[in-house]
Nucleic acid binder design. Structure first.
Lengths: 193, 193
DNA sequence: TGTACATCAGTGAACGCGCGTTCACTGATGTAC
DNA sequence: TGTACATCAGTGAACGCGCGTTCACTGATGTAC
């Protein structure tokens, strides 16, 4: 095997091992040596690839940023939040990104607790999230509060499908959408037809 | 000064110091020696009063439980969540308890990340919270989802005032109430009559 | 009330565990000629 | 193609820092007589 391949295989193995461990026992509870053990490498090997656990997390965040951008770009999506479909689309995308990258998100949230630096990063992610939603509220006639405040509350609700693990994905997205729709518009879904 | 007084004064000083530090730098970031330093005592003194940082947190949780019970008992409150006042009352109580005990709640959430034991405690708190709300949903005719699911979403929204630090308390409670009212009932507030 | 001893809160230096990180070493891959 | 040397990924024992926890000591309060 070529050296470069070898190195990149180990790097990937470390990242995947880290994700598995972050998902099961959390970022703060995972030691560097846990990661190397899970990846089947020697402890020292870790430092050939990352300066420390923080740097590994930064690598995970880079992955995540790439994916988010991809989503943001593609979407030729409905804008009007008086239309349930427009809300549902955003809830679904948000949920899929977060579920796919659950270990990274969880690690980021935990890292933010003990590191100013990651706290800022987390805040930046949240803001970007909200800005994406901001434009869509302009269509709504009868918001429950100011745009800024409504955004904050709505942003919190976007996490809701994660709280409903016992429901099938589609249903979790649907009830979250309906909850948000009602809160934004002050009515239930419009009659079909 | 009597011995018992002396001991209880030190104990209190340690608890108050811990709360201050938990609030500013978080539970996980606070070391036992930080607490003793903040309280102006020697490091060893801590262990005359608590077996460790965990035991101190348990003492804080006992305080919190006492307060919560007191609130639960007193309240001869409105039950019908088709009435905005009933929702507002719950949002306000929840918010006041959480704000007053913010350092404890934050510590509990952080401790839950690294300890199974505290994770269970946190879950018990959350459940108790939801059960208190459950009875009130029976009045609502047109819930956005099943009672169980609606409860979960509503429970998440109860945290909302904490996300709105720039608003005065009353306003934060009000917008949260309105958001929840709409989501539950599928209409805006009823016309005043 | 006074004296002698016991108890106990508080002290802080020292100990030791856990874990992150280093580093001398190995063996395989790459390069020069 | 072959040989000699250089480079580099990976290894794991060992080192050392940070911090939780202990413990012998001090001095003040409590108790016995």
């Amino acid at each position: 095997m070529k050296r470069a391949e070898q190195a990149s295989e180990t790097r990937t193995a470390l990242i995947e091992a880290a994700k598995r461990l972050f998902a099961t026992r959390g970022y703060l509870n995972t030691k560097v040596t846990d990661i190397t053990a899970e990846a089947g490498r020697a402890a020292g090997s870790f430092y050939n690839h990352f300066a420390g656990k923080e740097e590994l997390l930064k690598a995970l965040l880079d992955e995540l940023a790439a994916v988010s951008d991809r989503f943001a770009d593609t979407a030729e999506h409905k804008s009007d939040f008086t239309d349930p479909d427009a809300i549902r689309y955003h809830v679904a995308v948000y949920w899929r990104v977060h579920r796919e990258h659950a270990p990274t998100m969880l690690a980021l949230r935990q890292a933010a607790l003990v590191s100013e630096d990651f706290a800022r990063t987390y805040e930046r992610f949240r803001r970007a999230q909200l800005e994406d939603l901001a434009g869509h509220l302009a269509y709504v006639r009868n918001l429950p509060a100011s745009v800024e405040t409504t955004l904050t509350l709505m942003g919190a609700m976007m996490e809701a499908p994660a709280l409903l693990p016992e429901l099938p994905e589609e249903e979790a997205v649907e009830v979250t959408t309906r909850f948000i729709y009602r809160a934004l518009n002050g009515t239930d879904y419009p009659q079909q037809g």
